[in-house]
């Protein structure tokens, strides 16, 4: 088990009239090396949950365990700095965190904060910029000269440069065009296949279906389900009850099934779907 939550509660502004109980008795085990989607309506607690993984937030009660590091309400924040490196958290619209004069300086900023030498960090930056699909010539440019999509890649390169074991991404494709989104998700898949545990917070079920292995469903501060992607997309009634837009392919299958077809609703590959439809028309 890479990431474990035991009876984790989190209340914002406890003891004030504005107290907000965001996480209620969360129990969760996320397997090392998996690519897990975290889904749920806005306000369900996803953002609060992921901030516990790199200890930006401490549980009000309960405990969080990341590999062998234990986090509870009483853990002193400075002793949790290693967690920021172990679990790299990429917020929404990460391009807004760039600030250095050159892209090189911005990418090495993270690693240097964790004690990596400048020389070593520069080597890493050269690898990272290529990993995110840009060439080395970008390193000497100012991050502010780039387009939004390119800036986002730089921000992600900066987090990957810290070499986290766990990569948490909050809506990484928001605002990107289809090609940009595809490249980004393929990057995360690649990084996952190389051994990193990836957690993807997303509202786009098409992405969840195509790229993730497991899904955690959050609802009003609780973890309601933690199943494989295949299992989740078989339960289409459940998903609709959560007001979650089904992937295009899934709702298409459902409509066909309403009229005599018998297709497996968890099909994610369009070619498989085409074969299946063909098969059922030929029988």
């Amino acid at each position: 088990m890479s990431i474990t939550f035991k009876e984790v509660e989190h209340t914002y502004s406890a003891d004030t009239p504005f107290a907000y109980h965001a996480l209620k008795g969360v129990n969760l085990n996320i397997k090392k090396g998996s690519m897990t989607a975290l889904i749920g309506h806005t306000g369900s607690g996803k953002s609060t949950l992921i901030q516990h993984i790199n200890a930006l937030l401490l549980p009000t009660s309960g405990q969080v365990q990341i590999e062998d590091i234990l986090i509870t309400a009483t853990n002193k924040p400075s002793s949790l700095k290693p967690l920021r490196k172990k679990a790299g958290l990429v917020f929404q619209f990460p391009e807004y965190q760039l600030f250095e004069e050159t892209i090189l300086k911005d990418i090495i900023f993270g690693p240097k904060n964790f004690g990596i030498s400048e020389e070593e960090a520069i080597k890493i930056a050269k690898d990272m910029i290529q990993l995110v699909g840009l060439d080395e010539s970008y390193l000497e440019r100012s991050p502010f000269d780039l387009s939004g999509g390119q800036k986002r890649r730089i921000a992600i390169a900066g987090i990957l440069a810290m070499n986290p074991d766990i990569l948490i991404l909050d809506e990484p494709t928001a605002g990107l065009d289809p090609q940009g989104a595809k490249e980004m998700l393929q990057l995360f898949k690649k990084v996952n296949q190389e051994g990193k545990t990836v957690i993807l917070v997303s509202h786009d079920m098409n992405q969840v279906l195509e790229y993730c292995d497991d899904v955690v469903v959050m609802n009003h501060g609780h973890v309601e389900k933690h199943v494989t992607v295949n299992e989740l997309f078989k339960e289409t009634d459940y998903l609709t009850s959560l007001s979650i837009d089904l992937p295009i392919i899934t709702s298409f299958i459902l409509k066909l099934n309403e009229n005599g077809f018998h297709l497996d609703p968890s099909i994610k590959d369009i070619n498989v779907l085409i074969q299946e439809i063909g098969g059922q028309l030929y029988e």
Binding site: I248, F252, I277
Partner: peptide, 20 residues
């Protein structure tokens, strides 16, 4: 142009290739 093809078109084209 780095855009996606509409889903329905992908399916209908694929089915045509199967002879449907």
């Amino acid at each position: 142009l780095s855009l996606d093809i509409p889903f329905a078109y992908k399916v209908s084209e694929g089915l045509q290739k199967l002879g449907i």
